[in-house]
Design a protein around this nucleic acid. Structure first.
Lengths: 194, 194
DNA sequence: CTAGAATCGGAGTGCTCGCTCCGTTTCGAG
DNA sequence: CTCGAAACGGAGCGAGCACTCCGATTCTAG
């Protein structure tokens, strides 16, 4: 959970509050978007604003923390699928999973985007982990001929981000989303010829 | 250019200023994002803030006006391609064109999104026009077997929005963008079999 | 249990931004 | 040219927000 890199460990209540804030921040940002005020997060967490800012010195830092937690979860899922029986199925399952999350969680794709480019230093490590796991999924899927061989990790990341962004903003019709995703999947399977 | 639906026409200088503001707004929003302040737009247009707000009573109205202008341009392009010799080529050319624009212009995809859902009443008409033109391109492409027949306009709009959003946020590597787009294109061509 | 340190809470601060208001300037009909 | 109407400009208002500061509270080592 990244207990801050300090010398001493945090006090018990501080640790508890930190967790409460992080969870509340996720919920609030999903519901109200990332423009939701820090005060709202504090209220949802049942703590004062001061507490929020002590744990996350900046609103951006708070957002980053939420991002990192989610990226880590994704990375774990990806690693879990890395040794699945059917590499192709695993690859597409992960893709679908990510898009599914994005459909619910606001600013989920933003986290992915940062991971893709590794802008912030704090997301870099987790982002690298996710990319490594995804690379494994991709390579195995390509080796088993489930995915075309003429694309690399950057292209897949790009498609993943794009699909997630769409899912995020297409609240209503999940059917459309699924069919659009099917098109992308067929494209990923397509032979490289032309 | 939508000279406001008033009784009397606008005074000459007023019309000129309106155009200047609209153009400046486009430029500023592209450069700084839609969060750029109205004052910045006014400065870029060389007018006072009051003038901006007289022509566009709300910042949202200003954004909408920019959106509508761009959607109209797209709709015109689509109509121009509607009678091209090769329907498949026309369809994909339009798709590429849209994505290309998105790569340069900030919040371009936002305009597309609104057009897709037709949230605002003011974008509705232009959005309908664009959708109609795109529908023609799609139908003709499908009839000539250049595009799979098991998808409709909503799916294409979704893919278009997604591709545009990606293009918008992948500033750096155009190569990645093109290859990712190629995947989507292959998906659109794919046989509906599976 | 107790003292001192760590943590908390939330009123307050400064800043940005959308928008209004009205004195000043510019246009154009007659 | 004249003069009323239309349009302009930008100081100022109010709201909202990120972030600070410090007295009150809570934890925990000893």
């Amino acid at each position: 959970m990244t207990p801050p890199r300090d010398g001493r460990p945090l006090r018990a209540d501080a640790l508890r509050n930190r967790a409460k804030v992080l969870e509340a921040a996720g919920a609030v940002f999903d519901a109200r978007g990332t423009t939701a005020s820090t005060e709202e997060v504090a209220r949802a967490a049942g703590v004062g604003i001061g507490t929020v800012f002590r744990h996350f010195p900046t609103k951006e830092a708070l957002l980053e923390a939420v991002y990192v937690a989610r990226l880590r979860k994704l990375a774990d899922e990806a690693e879990g699928l890395a040794s699945a029986d059917d590499p192709g199925e695993a690859f597409f399952a992960f893709f679908t999973r990510v898009v599914g999350h994005a459909a619910t969680k606001n600013a989920f794709s933003a986290a992915l985007m940062e991971a893709g480019v590794d802008v912030r230093e704090s997301t870099a490590e987790t982002g690298q982990g996710l990319k490594r796991a995804l690379a494994t999924l991709l390579t195995r899927a390509q080796e088993s001929a489930a995915v075309r061989r003429d694309i690399g990790l950057p292209e897949v990341m790009t498609l993943l981000v794009g699909a997630s962004q769409v899912a995020e903003h297409v609240g209503g019709d999940g059917g459309v989303r699924d069919r659009a995703l099917a098109v992308v999947f067929d494209g990923l399977r397509a032979a490289p010829d032309r």
